[in-house]
Structure formats: C-alpha cells, structure tokens
Design a protein around this nucleic acid. Structure first.
Length: 885
RNA sequence: AGGCACGUAGCUCAGUGGGAGAGCACUUCCCUGACACGGAAGGGGUCGGCGGUUCAAUCCCGCCCGUGCCUACCA
C-alpha cells in the first residue's frame, strides 16, 4: 500500500492515527513470559491532580526514547505507567469543590468525602496520563497503576506492619512542621524555605527582683506567650550573675528562669535568647535538656489558644501585631530591625508552616539508609551523572526519621487500632475488631493516613504485584533505569532505594539517570503556584509531537538546566519537514522499485553510494554509543547532521544524476541504496520521532516484515562494508565542488550560469578519482566544460582555489569582475597566512619539537606544508590577476 | 553558613590537553522538477578576570568577580 505524501508534514492526523493503532494493537505491552532479556522502567508517578508540564514532557520523552530504542534492540521492554494519589493536593482540590458548594468535608463525613474524591478521580483525575499519550509515550497502558489501587494498598499495609513489627515504625510526641491551612503534619522535605523580608524585634524582659532588663531578639514576637526560659551562654561574662535568676514574662503572669546553654551565640544580638520549646526546633532541644515546660499557644488553625491569655482566639499574625503594640505600650519594645530570614512554607499551599507539638508516626530510617547508601557505594545502583551521588550521600548520611502520618482523609489509612480499654495499639495487615492485648472490642482505628511518598517508595515493586511473587516481578525487577529530575532525588530515589533494598533485598533500579530541569527565563523552577508554566500541549499542537520531542532530546545535556526557546522548536519542526520531503523525493523515485530481492553485495556501488553507506555506518555506531551513555543531545545532533547535511544535502543531490540517467543498472543500484539508507535512517530516528518515522516507513515500497517500525531492529552497524578509497575519493570530489561553489558565490557568478573549470591534479590517482566523480561536479557545481589532468594546460587568466591535491582553475572569461577576484584572493590569502604563521611559530618552538608526541608533530608539519603550498598557489594567482589591471 | 553547578558567536546552548562548534538570528545570491519549514556562499567569539601546572590550557589547579540551585536550627 502506497501513501501519497503531502507537500509538507502535517502532524495532527498522523499522530492521532498511529497512537490509536499502536495502543489498540497492544504494541507497547510487555510480555513477562518473553525469553528476551528485559529492560524495564517505572514511570516516576505524576500526581493524579497533575497536568502535563515541561518537566513531565522532558522526563517522559527521555524514558520513551530509551524504551523504544531498547525495544528495537531486542529487549522485552516494560514501561510501567501510573499516578500517585497525591494526598494533600487531591484533598485540597476536592475541598475547594466543596467550598464552592458551601460545604466542608466535616459536614460530609469521612466515608462520603473519600467517595467524593474517588468520583473526582474517575471524572477528572489522571488527565496527565492522556497527555502523555499525546507525546507518544509507549507505556504499557494495560498495566497502568494508581497508588490507591487495591494491590498497591496491600503493599503499603504489608510494609507498614512489617516495619512496625520490627520496631522501625514508632509514635512520638515532638515538634513537627504543621500547616495551619491543610491541618496536617508535613515531613521536612515537604517544607520549602524561602527568604522573606521580616523584622527582628528586640524585647525587654524585666529581671525579677532588680530593675534590670534582659533584652531578647525574635522574628516571631507572638511566641513569647509560650516562652518558658531565657538562655544565655554559660561563658558570657555579662550575664554570670543572672544565671539561675528569673525574669517576669511580660503580658503574662509567669516567671521564667534564666538558664545557661552553649547553643547561645554570644555575638548575636544581646546574647540572650528567649526559649519557646513548643514552637521552635532549637528551643525544643533546649527545653528537653533543661527540663523546661512546653507551652503550646496555638491551635490547629494557627489561632492563639487558651494558653495565650487575653490573646485567645487571635490569628497568629494578628496576635503578633497586638503583642508588639502591647509591649511597646509597656515600654518593653527596645527596637525593631529589618531582617531577612528563611521562612518555611507548605509545599502544597504556600502557607507558612508552624513548628507544632504533636504526636505522629515515624519511620526510623537510619538502618534503611545504610543499606541504600551501600547499594550506591558498591555500584549496585549507578547514578548518572555521577556528581549526583555526592548529593545523594550527603542527604542519606544526615537523614532524620521520617514523619509519615498526615492528618487528612485521602490516603492509606494507618492500619493501627487504639484500644479504649487497655490503651494499647494493635497494628495489623487485616482490619481488626479485637484488641490484640486485652481482647476488648472497644477499638478505634487511627484516623491519620500515610504520606503519599510512603506508597510511592514502594512503586518499583508494588506496581508489579508485590507482596505476591508474580511473574512480572521475576521478569522485570529490579528495573533497569529510573529517569528523574534532581528535584525529587530525595523524595523518590532515596526512598525507593530504602524500601527496595529492605523489602526486595535488591536495589529497585540499576541506573538512575538524573536529567536537567526545565526552568523559565529567570532560571526559576516552573510551578503552578508561580504561574510561570508553559503548556507542552500547546507546543505539540503548534509544532507537532516529533519536533517537540526532538527539541527536548537535543536539550537534554546532562547536568544542565533547560530554558526552552520556541525558535529552537521551530528549527526541529523544519527538521521533521526536511525528513518528510527527503522521503517524498525518495518515494517519487522508487515508484518502480521493489526492495524484495535487492542485494547490495551484488551491485556495483558508486562513489556516492559508498560514501553515504559509510556515513550511515558511522551514524549508527555513534548514536548507539550516545544513547547507551544517556547522551541524548549527542544522539540528536548525530542524527540531525547525518539526515540533513549528509543524506539530504549531499547524497540526494548526488543521486539525482544517477536516478535520472539512461543507465538502468546505475539507476537500480542507486534506488537500492536510497531505499536502504532511508529505511535504516527512519529506524535510527524512530525513538526520538516515533510518529513521522512510522508514517513514512509504511509509505515505503515493498512489504515490511513487522507491523510497526518500533518492532524493527535498531541499526547498530554498517549495512555492508565500504571501500575506504572510494569514500575518500568522494570526499575529494565534494571538496572540489565546494571550491567551485566558493568561487561562484564570492564572485557573484549567477547560479544559473554554467562555467568552465580546469582541474590541475597532483597525480594520476587524483585524476582518476575526479574522472569517476566528474558527473557530480558537472551537476552540483554547474560546470559545462571540465578539463582534468596532471599538469594540464592552464588558462592564462583564471580564478584559483585549492581543494586538497587539486588546483581548481576557473577561466576569468567566465567571471564577472577582476576586482572581486582580487578581493576574494586577498581574503583567502589572509586566512591561509594565519594558518602558516600559527604552525611556523609552533614548530619553531624547540621545546614543542622536543616534547610533543611524534604524531602531533607530524600532523602539524603536514598541515604547515599544505598551508604553505596553498598560500603559494593563491599568491601566484593574485600576482597574475594584478597584471591584468 | 556549607554543598553543587554555571559564566563559550547577537540569542539559546553543545564541546575538547594539541589549529573554536550547532541551531536560530544576520549578509549576499537563488522560487534549479523533495523541501522557501528550502538551496548555495559568507560575516561574527583574545571560550568571565588574574595567576599556576604543561612543550601546549577554552579544557587541569588556585584565587577573584558574577549568576543559579540544593542543604542548614543563628534567635
């Protein structure tokens, strides 16, 4: 079946058509019973609330390139897709909907609310999954998973209970990061720190029984309501006599002690620090050391509670203002300085978090981290680029226990039951109604749910059916690679590593490829809350998925940030079109061609054929090397220049004469090569540009052995071995063509004008090479009269150019302007003189000659000789020209 | 404060211990039967600054300046 190709490539219908075919036919499905070696990737699960952004587009394009490349390279490929339930974010979305209906979740009740979230998920969740299809992602969509799925929930319980039984999960009442808007605890990682312009208030606390004041500084004056001490450094001479005394805490009835602690920095401020153990992480530690009271002055919403005396019910910032005013009225406000400090914010809603006393569930991670560290140190998992290993280690060595409980409803409810009778906790894989300790039936289940990242951490094996021992796990675990941005190195990589090594006793992935981050023009991370996102789908609409993918691939240099430029995308859109049109050319000239029975070995190949086949072999080898090392940008650039600058610019042009000529044998062998190279090129390009390559591939004449190009074999090497000297001869001919074109261009010879050219060659071998390629010179350089020989008769007046061992002489009679030739020659001579000078200087350096390796010396001497020769020829030519004036 | 990057052509970015690259933009010419989303020929950079190692440094080392990111409990 032949497809008529339109004049320019129109991506829309092609993309839609092929994706449907691929998916419906199950082309992406991984067979766990396949005898082929496996290659597996689990998608870093995007939030179910998410919409596709540039980061996803890059991340998934790279994964797709790897998967398609490996699939074509003989591997059974599993690319596991899915989403995570994004507890806080999803709950926020549905709560907003409720708010619009003047409801809140408490009116609805827990069960009804969760039902509502599921309904939201069915109707509008997981958009991102369909958006990935637009990019061409070849995930095994039949296996799509969600962290709240039954199977994955079972895995979560299994892990929770196992860790609890081992004593690696425990409860404790300590300070945590609390979001007063989301009403939940957050892990350290979920707090984002941002420098904020604030104030430093200096407060005066009266020392009991004296008329002295102790000055303390704070960025959060309202917390003074919960102060239970003032601390000074034990060695601070200013305050020796005060240690052990008390101050009267203003605005309250309380007297609090003055204590000595080495934490205090003598240099900072007055050297005295107010201590609020229930509202500051440092103060919490000091409070424990000195057995101070822990007075919580806030409620869950950040309002002052009953411990705040007359400030009760005030919002925390209103209380701040009021406290400052009141202190000022009492003459206890010493001064206020402008002050910048880092404020922690909720990563979901940007509300300033409060350190808050609360009883939470924790995972003791030290032992898990030790295994995860060992896995990287021992090379079981390789992080690429390697520089990220250092970051990974640094975080892992300093890791703190992980607060995993969240006070929300949407998520995996913690499988723990409190006994109202004996007060003990029962933790169980199955729901229980009887206390394990006292057999009472008076139980209530923990209302907290687990951190979403807890379930994400199990993703590499829970998606494959764990805790059941499935064939999928056997075949595809450990996964081959995880592709992710460094912003979630800790969220995902670290935690997946800990859980994988713990529960599978094997690393979850053999390699981790950390890619760049797509940022906006200011180098800021794109985020919904900043409003600086560009929708990748509008890019796909405008330029096509293939062009967009190619751009991302070309930009994916390791370790860098990406600032997307639409100009660049436009450039790759043109590239797609170039391929399209080159294919149109091929199809037009292959109408009478049947690839069946074609055998390159039995054909006599032209210079051009040999040349393009050798370039093909080079490109195939290089692109495999690049992809194997995650050098996506190298792969893109190798294929770009092979396609455009070698195949289109040269081979197609060179082939025209042979295709249009009389000689049917030559025409046939050219058709074979044209077909063969294009067909292989499409396969090489397919992982980066799946749609256009599939479309063209099916339009090629003849039958395909498999139903999709994605099942064809990826090129790795030469199609046939080529003759080096024929290739070199072709390159010489190309140099000659370039030399003639240079003269034509510089001397403004009209493109349509045919000219005479004399080629004075250094040897008969060169003459022979030119002879074989002279038709190329005629057509590509627009030459009508070509004289070739050794020491041929030279035109009396000619423009001169040098191409290797060939002197290119163009009789001036055909040229327009002697002045221009003079200018051109001067320019050329200046250029070559610089070369001569450079090498003469280098080679006259005795130390260089004495120390440089012989190959370098030899090479430079040869270069000098060539340059000198060229300079002489051009110089003589210039002198001749001057005699004409 | 510590850690990690980055500073190369007008713009966006590759790259290497041995004479500086790409895409886009720019200049000149061309609608030659695949393609004007095109073709041909050109112009353009003392590779952030200063030192050091080396026969040789844009690349390795040190310092400095500038930018960005990550981690951190200075009130």
């Amino acid at each position: 079946m032949k497809t008529e190709l339109s004049k320019s490539y129109e991506p829309e219908q092609v993309e839609e058509k092929w994706f449907d075919v691929w998916e419906q036919r199950g082309d992406f499905h991984a067979d766990e019973n396949s005898p082929k070696p496996h290659y597996s990737i689990v998608i870093p699960p995007p939030n179910v609330t998410g919409v596709l952004h540039m980061g996803h587009a890059l991340n998934n394009t790279l994964q797709d390139i790897l998967c398609r490349w490996k699939r074509m390279s003989g591997y059974e490929v599993l690319w596991m897709p899915g989403t995570d339930h994004a507890g806080i974010a999803t709950q926020n979305v549905v709560e907003k909907q409720l708010a619009a209906e003047n409801m809140d979740r408490h009116e609805l009740g827990r069960d009804a609310f969760i039902e509502r979230v599921w309904k939201w998920r069915e109707e509008s969740g997981g958009q991102i999954i369909n958006q990935l299809r637009r990019l061409g992602a070849s995930c095994d969509w039949q296996r799509e998973r969600f962290t709240m799925d039954e199977g994955l929930s079972k895995a979560v319980r299994e892990v929770f209970v196992s860790l609890y039984d081992e004593g690696l999960i425990y409860r404790d009442n300590r300070l945590i990061n609390w979001c007063p808007r989301c009403h939940t605890a957050l892990s350290d990682l979920e707090v984002e720190h941002d420098d904020k312009q604030g104030s430093l208030w200096h407060l005066r606390y009266p020392v009991k029984g004296t008329d002295r004041y102790l000055s303390v500084a704070t960025t959060r004056p309202e917390t003074m309501l919960g102060d239970t001490a003032v601390a000074v450094h034990p060695d601070d001479e200013r305050y020796q006599d005060l240690i052990g005394q008390k101050v009267q805490l203003p605005l309250t009835e309380r007297e609090i002690p003055i204590i000595a602690d080495e934490y205090v920095d003598i240099e900072f401020g007055s050297g005295a620090v107010k201590i609020t153990p229930a509202h500051d992480f440092n103060d919490f530690e000091i409070g424990k050391r000195h057995d101070l009271d822990f007075i919580n002055i806030l409620d869950e919403s950040g309002l002052i509670n009953e411990n705040g005396g007359s400030y009760i019910g005030m919002e925390r910032y209103a209380a701040r203002t009021q406290v400052v005013t009141d202190l000022k009225d009492l003459g206890l406000l010493e001064k206020v300085d402008a002050y910048t400090n880092a404020v922690g914010e909720c990563y979901r809603c940007r509300t300033t978090i409060e350190p808050y006393m609360s009883k939470q569930w924790y995972v003791a991670v030290k032992s898990l981290a030790a295994e995860a560290i060992n896995a990287v140190e021992s090379g079981q998992t390789k992080i690429v680029p390697q520089q990220w290993e250092k970051t990974y280690y640094e975080w892992m060595y300093n890791i703190q226990d992980w607060c995993v409980s969240r006070q929300i409803w949407w998520g995996h409810r913690i499988p723990a039951w409190f006994c109202n009778n004996c007060g003990e906790i029962t933790v169980s894989r199955d729901d229980v109604s009887v206390c394990k300790h006292c057999s009472s039936n008076d139980l209530r289940q923990e209302t907290d749910v687990l951190d979403t990242w807890f379930s994400s951490a199990l993703w590499p094996f829970s998606t494959m059916g764990w805790p059941d021992q499935t064939q999928a796990l056997q075949k595809f675990y450990p996964t081959s690679c995880l592709v992710t941005g460094f912003d979630i190195l800790f969220f995902w990589v670290a935690r997946m590593m800990m859980m994988g090594t713990k529960f599978m006793e094997t690393v979850p992935f053999k390699e981790v490829y950390i890619h760049a981050l797509v940022r906006d023009a200011q180098g800021q991370k794109m985020s919904k809350s900043k409003g600086n996102v560009i929708d990748p789908l509008t890019i796909v609409d405008e330029y096509g998925a293939d062009a967009f993918r190619y751009t991302l691939c070309a930009f994916a240099a390791m370790g860098r940030d990406i600032k997307l430029s639409t100009d660049r995308i436009g450039g790759y859109r043109n590239f797609v079109n170039k391929l399209w049109n080159a294919s149109r050319f091929a199809l037009m000239n292959l109408e009478d061609f049947d690839p069946a029975g074609a055998n390159l070995d039995q054909l006599s190949l032209s210079q051009a054929d040999q040349w393009i086949l050798s370039r093909y072999a080079f490109a195939a080898a290089e692109v495999n090397k690049a992809l194997g090392n995650y050098k996506f940008n190298d792969a893109a650039s190798i294929l770009y220049s092979f396609t455009w600058h070698e195949f289109c610019d040269w081979y197609i042009e060179l082939s025209k004469g042979n295709l249009y000529g009389e000689d049917t044998d030559v025409r046939y062998s050219t058709q074979v090569v044209l077909f063969t190279v294009l067909e292989g090129l499409l396969r090489m390009l397919h992982p980066i540009m799946p749609f256009v390559t599939e479309e063209i591939w099916h339009a090629l004449p003849g039958e395909r052995a498999v139903s999709s190009i994605m099942q064809a074999t990826y090129p790795t090497t030469a199609i046939i071995s080529t003759d080096d000297s024929a290739v070199a001869d072709m390159e010489l001919v190309m140099d000659v063509i370039r030399a003639i074109r240079n003269v034509r261009g510089e001397l403004d010879v009209p493109p349509g004008k045919k000219i005479k050219v004399v080629l004075d060659c250094k040897s008969e071998a060169v003459v022979e090479a030119i002879h074989v390629g002279q038709e190329y010179i005629h057509s590509l350089a627009r030459v009508e009269n070509l004289v070739v020989g050794v020491a041929v008769e030279r035109p009396r007046q000619a423009s001169t150019q040098v191409a290797g061992e060939v002197e290119v002489l163009i009789p001036l009679a055909d040229l327009i302007n002697v002045d221009e030739e003079e200018a051109r020659l001067n320019k050329e001579i200046d250029k070559i003189k610089k070369d001569v000078d450079f090498f003469e200087k280098k080679l006259s350096n005795e130390k260089f000659v004495a120390n440089a390796p012989p190959q370098v010396l030899e090479k430079d001497r040869a270069k000098l000789a060539t340059a000198v020769k060229k300079r002489e020829i051009l110089q003589q030519s210039l002198e001749k020209i001057l005699t004409l004036k």
